[in-house]
Computed example of a mutant assay.
Amino acid sequence: MAKDKKQPVILITNDDGITAPGIRNLVEAVKDLGRVVVVAPDKPQSGMGHAITIGHPLRLSKVDDIVPGVESWITSGTPVDCVKLAVDKILKKKPDLCLSGINHGANHSINVIYSGTMSAAMEASIESIPSMGFSLLDYNYEADFAGARFYVNKIVSTFLKKKLDKHFLLNVNIPSLPLELIKGIKVCRQAYAKYEEDFKERKDPHNKKYYWLTGAFVNFDKGKDTDVWALDNNYVSIVPVQFDLTNYKLKEQLQKTFK
């Protein structure tokens, strides 16, 4: 697709860092859909959630294109910082779309709370930029991204044809399977699941205690309309997400209590 001023501007970021294969695959998946600009952390920032940098200076540097012809920048900050800096210092305006990922590992269910990938997308949504976060259920840097690239392109190209709400936000997870084994897309709700955590106590060479977080992901939700079910059954899951955390059902109850 020939690039011109009328093409949409697509901001791309992640939480695995500028060198992660996932972000290169995300760029490759959408580079022909608009003008792509990459702003990513200079190091892995997984699990940072919606953290922002306030206690020390932020660094921002242009780097060699991670994909030829695609403007690329790195920052010392968090994924959320990447979005803020991109809008204020690089693009000088809001992009048409923000894409975050492709994350190495799942961001389904409760992971959306902790995820730097999804927090970057959510920050864009807060700033009235339609956004999507993408994750592949494979932590291996040698993972096969062919299926992920296909579905990223399919989903992004679909929504670029539509007028989106300014707070549009999707959490997209993709099973780690060859493309031909992925059954399609399911629009889902977030499953009720959590980590059963354990802190392993160890001692350092100075005989001082330290703790290492471990645990297992446990799904308590047996519904067949959840992201966990979809992924377990070889579908791409799409969960519409919002940053408004109001419990509206409880709000109605409390209004009756305190009327």
Rank of each mutant, 00 (worst) to 15 (best):
V36M: 07
V36R: 05
V36F: 06
V38T: 04
V39F: 01
V39R: 01
A40H: 02
P41S: 12
D42Y: 06
D42M: 13
K43T: 11
P44N: 04
P44V: 08
P44L: 06
Q45P: 00
S46W: 09
G47K: 10
G47D: 07
G47T: 07
M48T: 09
M48D: 08
G49I: 08
G49V: 07
A51F: 04
T53R: 06
T53V: 08
T53W: 08
T53S: 08
T53P: 01
G55Q: 03
H56L: 05
L58Q: 09
L58G: 05
R59N: 08
L60M: 12
S61A: 13
S61M: 11
S61F: 11
S61C: 06
K62W: 09
K62T: 10
K62I: 11
D65C: 09
I66H: 03
V67K: 06
V67W: 06
P68H: 05
G69Q: 05
G69A: 04
G69R: 05
V70K: 00
E71G: 00
S72R: 05
S72H: 05
W73K: 02
W73T: 04
W73Y: 10
T75C: 05
T75E: 07
T75D: 07
S76P: 12
S76E: 13
G77N: 13
P79G: 03
V80G: 08
D81F: 09
D81G: 08
C82K: 02
V83Y: 00
K84H: 00
K84P: 00
L85Q: 04
L85K: 02
A86G: 03
V87C: 02
V87D: 01
V87R: 01
D88Q: 15
D88C: 06
K89G: 02
L91R: 09
L91N: 06
K93F: 11
K93Y: 11
K93M: 14
K94V: 01
K94P: 01
P95V: 09
P95W: 07
P95C: 08
D96V: 08
D96Q: 07
L97S: 03
L97D: 04
C98R: 01
C98D: 02
L99W: 04
S100P: 07
S100Y: 05
G101Q: 03
I102G: 01
I102A: 02
I102F: 01
N103L: 11
N103A: 15
N103V: 05
G105I: 09
A106T: 15
A106I: 12
A106D: 06
N107W: 00
H108V: 14
S109Q: 07
S109H: 07
I110K: 13
I110E: 15
I110Y: 15
N111Y: 14
N111M: 15
N111Q: 14
V112H: 14
V112N: 14
V112E: 14
I113S: 10
I113N: 12
Y114K: 12
Y114Q: 10
Y114P: 02
T117N: 15
T117L: 14
M118K: 00
S119P: 01
A121L: 00
M122H: 00
M122N: 04
E123T: 09
E123C: 09
S125I: 04
E127Q: 13
E127D: 05
E127G: 00
S128L: 10
S128E: 15
S128H: 11
S128D: 14
I129G: 09
I129N: 09
I129Y: 11
P130D: 04
S131G: 11
S131K: 08
S131E: 07
G133I: 14
S135N: 05
L136N: 06
L137Y: 02
N140P: 03
Y141P: 11
Y141F: 15
Y141L: 15
